[in-house]
Nucleic acid binder design. Structure first.
Lengths: 133, 133
DNA sequence: CCGAATCCACAACGATACTG
DNA sequence: CAGTATCGTTGTGGATTCGG
C-alpha cells in the first residue's frame, strides 16, 4: 500500500534501495504538501506565468515565499524556469510533465473542496457550537 | 476555474456569498494542505484506528501534532471520533464520507510521488550539481 | 490510554534594502 | 523586473507534565 511507503516502516528490508526510496518519497511529499506549493502549481496550470503574475495571482503570498517555493519546485523538476536575457529581465515559469501530473491531483483536491464546502461548513458549526444547545 | 476561487480575487462580486465561499475554500485548503493532515488521512484509509495506532503508524509525528490535526480534521467533518467510555479509554478514528473523498485525491498524490520518484531524483541531482561540471 | 496545557528552542515568515 | 540577503518578529512544533 502506498501509505506504508510514505509513512510506515519498511517491514523486512529486502533491498536497501527500498528504504531509501521511502525516505525520498516522504521528503518529496513533505515538500509538496504545503499550501503555497500547491497554489503555485494550480495557478500556473497549463500556462506560462511571470514572477509578478504569479505574485498577483496568489492572494497573500509574499515575495520571499514565492521565490522560495519556486526554487524548491524547480529543484524537484516540477516546473521549468526560463530567463529571457533582456532588460528588464523576463522570467517565465511553466509546469513540466511531472508538474502537470501533480497538478491533476491538486485539481482533484480543489474539486473536492468545492464539493464538500457545505458539509464542512455544517460540521464546523456543530463542532464550534456551545456545549449546550 | 477552480484556481480563481481558491486564490484569485473574485472579480466583480456578484454575490456576497461567493466571496465568502472563496475565503472559506481557501481556509479549508490551508487546513488540509499540510503533510500531517494528509498523512493522517492516508493512514486511516478505510479502516478504524486508535490514537496510539496512528502515532505508531505515522513515522515522526509528535503527540501534539497528532492531537492537533485530529481535532482540526474532526472539526472540518473529515473524520469521526468515537470514545469508548471504558478504562483505560479507547478512542477510535475513522474517515467520514468527506474524508474518504479527500483520501481519494491524496491517493492520487501518493501514486504520483511513486511514479515520478526517479524523475525528481534526477532533477535534484542536476539542480544541486556544482555550477561547472 | 487519551488529551489539554505549559514552556521554550528554533524555523518560518514578512519587511526592507541592495544587486544585475 | 527578478532575485538574494539580512533582520526582527511571529508562530510552529517538540518535550514534558498533569488530569480524566
Amino acid at each position: 500500500m502506498v501509505t506504508k511507503q510514505l509513512s510506515g516502516d519498511a517491514g523486512a528490508a529486502d533491498d536497501a534501495d527500498l528504504t531509501r526510496a521511502d525516505s525520498l518519497a516522504r521528503e518529496i511529499f513533505s515538500d509538496v504538501a504545503n499550501k503555497w506549493a500547491l497554489l503555485i502549481i494550480e495557478t500556473i496550470g497549463d500556462g506560462t506565468l511571470r514572477f509578478t503574475e504569479l505574485r498577483n495571482g496568489i492572494e497573500g503570498i509574499s515575495h520571499k515565499m514565492l521565490t522560495q517555493n519556486l526554487r524548491m519546485l524547480e529543484r524537484n523538476g516540477l516546473l521549468e524556469r526560463t530567463v529571457h536575457p533582456t532588460v528588464p529581465p523576463r522570467v517565465e515559469y511553466t509546469l513540466t510533465e511531472a508538474g502537470q501530473g501533480l497538478r491533476a491531483t491538486v485539481d482533484g483536491m480543489c474539486d473536492w473542496t468545492q464539493r464538500f464546502l457545505g458539509h464542512i461548513e455544517g460540521a464546523r458549526r456543530r463542532f464550534d457550537a456551545p456545549v449546550n444547545g
